[in-house]
């Protein structure tokens, strides 16, 4: 069952790299936020892929880690969105430089 882990794990790595690229290249804050979230999803995906162990029951420890991570990611996203709103109210970030 190694190919399954390798297949999905590689997809996680690709997601992480795609998110990193988008985070560096695109200027609008909302797009950066989506890019960070997709980077995080890539890491979560890698952990879930490693936890899947074929014939044995999946490893619950990475699952718990990812569950924690999802909640923290959303709370950080909410905080970042409020920050960006305040930034716009205060005169605006470099929104349309892209």
């Amino acid at each position: 069952m190694i190919p399954l882990q390798a297949l999905y794990g590689s997809a996680g790595v690709v997601l992480f790299v795609l998110g990193l690229w988008s985070f560096l290249v695109h200027a609008p804050l909302l797009r950066k936020l989506i890019a960070i979230n997709i980077m995080g999803s890539g890491v979560f995906h890698l952990l879930i892929a490693i936890a899947e162990r074929g014939t044995e029951p999946p490893d619950p420890v990475p699952h718990a880690l990812v569950l924690t991570g999802i909640v923290v990611a959303v709370s950080a996203t909410a905080l970042a969105l409020v920050f960006s709103r305040r930034l716009e109210d205060a005169g605006g970030p470099p929104e349309d430089e892209c």
């Binding site: 190694i2 794990g9 790299v17």
Partner: peptide, 21 residues
Amino acid sequence: IALLAAVLGAALLWVFLPLLA
């Protein structure tokens, strides 16, 4: 940037896949 990101991805896969085996 795209090139560097691709290199990073290749390096990560190069570490990850042998480790898995």
